[in-house]
Measured scan of single mutants.
Amino acid sequence: TTQFTVHSPEQAEQWKEYAKQKGLEVHVQKKNGTWHVTIH
């Protein structure tokens, strides 16, 4: 599991796309103005 924080919805979307291409599961949670992205 990879977990990191991004600071814009655009970055979060890019990671979603990346994960989809790799066939991975991605979870994005918005918290205090940042987005926590978890890739399984």
Rank of each mutant, 00 (worst) to 15 (best):
T34E: 14
K20C: 06
K31F: 11
Q21G: 09
E13S: 06
F4K: 04
E13R: 09
Q3W: 13
E17H: 06
K31G: 10
W15I: 10
H7A: 13
V6K: 01
T2K: 13
Y18Q: 03
H7F: 12
V37M: 03
V37T: 00
T1L: 13
Q29N: 08
E10G: 06
H36P: 01
E17S: 06
F4M: 07
T34A: 15
V28E: 00
S8I: 04
Q14S: 10
N32G: 12
F4E: 03
L24E: 02
V26H: 03
F4R: 04
E13F: 07
E17W: 07
Q11T: 06
K22A: 12
T38P: 00
T38M: 08
Q29T: 13
H40C: 11
Q3K: 11
T2L: 15
K22W: 12
K31D: 09
H40S: 12
T2M: 15
K22Y: 12
Q21Y: 08
V28P: 00
T2C: 15
K30L: 14
A12V: 14
V28N: 00
V28M: 04
K16I: 15
G23L: 03
H40N: 08
K31H: 11
E25C: 13
Y18K: 04
Q14Y: 15
V6T: 06
Q14K: 13
K20Y: 08
G23Q: 04
K30S: 09
W15Q: 01
A19I: 03
K22E: 07
K31Q: 11
P9F: 15
K16Y: 12
V37F: 04
G23D: 04
H7S: 14
H7D: 15
P9A: 15
Q14P: 02
W35Y: 11
S8H: 05
V28G: 00
T5E: 13
K20V: 08
G23R: 04
H7T: 13
V37S: 00
K16W: 09
T2E: 09
A19F: 09
H27F: 09
Y18E: 03
W35D: 01
E17Q: 11
V26L: 06
K31P: 00
S8C: 11
Q21V: 10
H40K: 11
L24V: 06
E10I: 06
I39K: 00
E13A: 10
T38Y: 07
A12K: 02
K22T: 08
Q21S: 13
H40Q: 09
T2N: 09
G33W: 03
E10R: 06
E13P: 01
P9Q: 15
F4Q: 03
Q29Y: 09
K20N: 08
H36W: 15
V28R: 00
S8N: 06
L24M: 08
Q14G: 07
K31Y: 11
V28S: 01
T34R: 12
I39L: 10
H27T: 13
P9K: 15
K20W: 07
S8L: 06
Q3E: 13
F4S: 03
Q11W: 04
N32E: 09
T38S: 06
A19Y: 10
T5V: 14
H36A: 06
V6H: 01
K20L: 11
H7C: 14
W35Q: 01
E10S: 06
T5S: 07
V26S: 04
V6P: 02
H40M: 12
Q29E: 14
W35H: 02
H36F: 14
V26T: 02
T5I: 15
W15G: 00
K20F: 08
T1A: 09
H40R: 10
V37R: 00
H27M: 08
T38E: 06
T5K: 07
H7N: 14
Q11K: 07
E25T: 12
K16R: 12
S8M: 04
K16H: 05
K20M: 10
V28W: 03
T38W: 08
H36T: 14
F4N: 03
H27L: 08
I39F: 04
L24K: 04
E25A: 11
T2R: 14
T2D: 07
F4L: 09
K31L: 13
T1I: 13
A12P: 01
Q3M: 10
Y18N: 03
P9G: 11
I39R: 00
T2S: 10
K30I: 12
T1H: 10
V37Q: 00
Q29R: 11
I39H: 00
T38G: 01
E13I: 06
K30Q: 13
K20P: 02
E10F: 07
G33Y: 04
K16N: 05
E17A: 08
P9Y: 15
E10L: 08
A19S: 03
F4I: 13
K16L: 12
V6E: 03
H7L: 10
W35F: 10
Q21M: 11
Q11L: 13
H36L: 15
Q29W: 08
W35P: 01
Q14I: 12
I39P: 00
P9N: 11
V26Q: 00
T2W: 15
V6N: 01
W15Y: 05
K30D: 07
W35S: 01
H27K: 07
Q21P: 02
A19P: 01
I39S: 00
T1R: 09
Q14N: 07
V37K: 00
I39Y: 01
H7M: 11
N32S: 05
H7G: 12
A12R: 02
E17K: 09
H7V: 08
E13L: 08
K22G: 05
H40G: 10
Q11A: 14
K22S: 09
Q3G: 07
S8K: 03
H27C: 13
K20R: 12
K30A: 11
H27N: 07
E25V: 13
E10D: 08
L24R: 03
V26R: 00
I39A: 00
Q21L: 13
F4C: 12
E25F: 13
T5F: 12
H40D: 05
T1N: 09
T5Y: 13
Q3S: 14
T34I: 15
W35L: 05
A12I: 09
Y18F: 10
V37N: 00
K20E: 10
G33T: 03
W15E: 02
V26I: 15
Q14T: 07
K30R: 10
I39N: 00
K31S: 11
Q29I: 15
V37Y: 01
Q14E: 11
A12N: 01
G23A: 04
I39M: 06
E25G: 08
I39W: 02
H40A: 09
T2V: 15
N32W: 03
A12W: 07
E25R: 10
L24Q: 03
Q14D: 06
T34Q: 13
E10C: 06
E25M: 12
Q14W: 15
A12E: 02
Q3I: 11
G23T: 02
Q21R: 11
Q21N: 11
G23P: 04
E17D: 10
N32F: 05
V26F: 12
E25Q: 12
L24Y: 10
S8G: 07
T38C: 12
T2Y: 15
K16S: 06
E25I: 14
H36R: 09
V28A: 02
V28D: 00
Q29M: 10
V37W: 00
E13H: 07
V26G: 01
K16A: 10
E10H: 07
A12H: 02
E10V: 07
N32Y: 05
G33S: 04
N32A: 05
A12S: 03
T1D: 10
Q29V: 14
G33L: 04
V26M: 06
T2Q: 13
E25D: 11
K16V: 15
H27R: 07
K22V: 10
N32K: 07
N32M: 04
W15N: 01
W35T: 02
K20S: 08
K22L: 14
V6C: 08
W15S: 01
E13V: 05
K20I: 10
Q14L: 13
S8E: 05
G33P: 01
K31R: 12
T2F: 15
A19T: 02
T1W: 14
Y18A: 04
Q21K: 12
Q3Y: 13
V26N: 00
N32L: 05
I39T: 01
V26Y: 09
H27V: 10
W35M: 03
V37C: 00
K22P: 02
T34C: 14
L24N: 02
T34F: 13
A12T: 03
Q3T: 13
E10K: 06
K16E: 10
P9R: 15
G33K: 05
T1Q: 09
E13G: 04
E10Q: 09
S8A: 04
K16F: 10
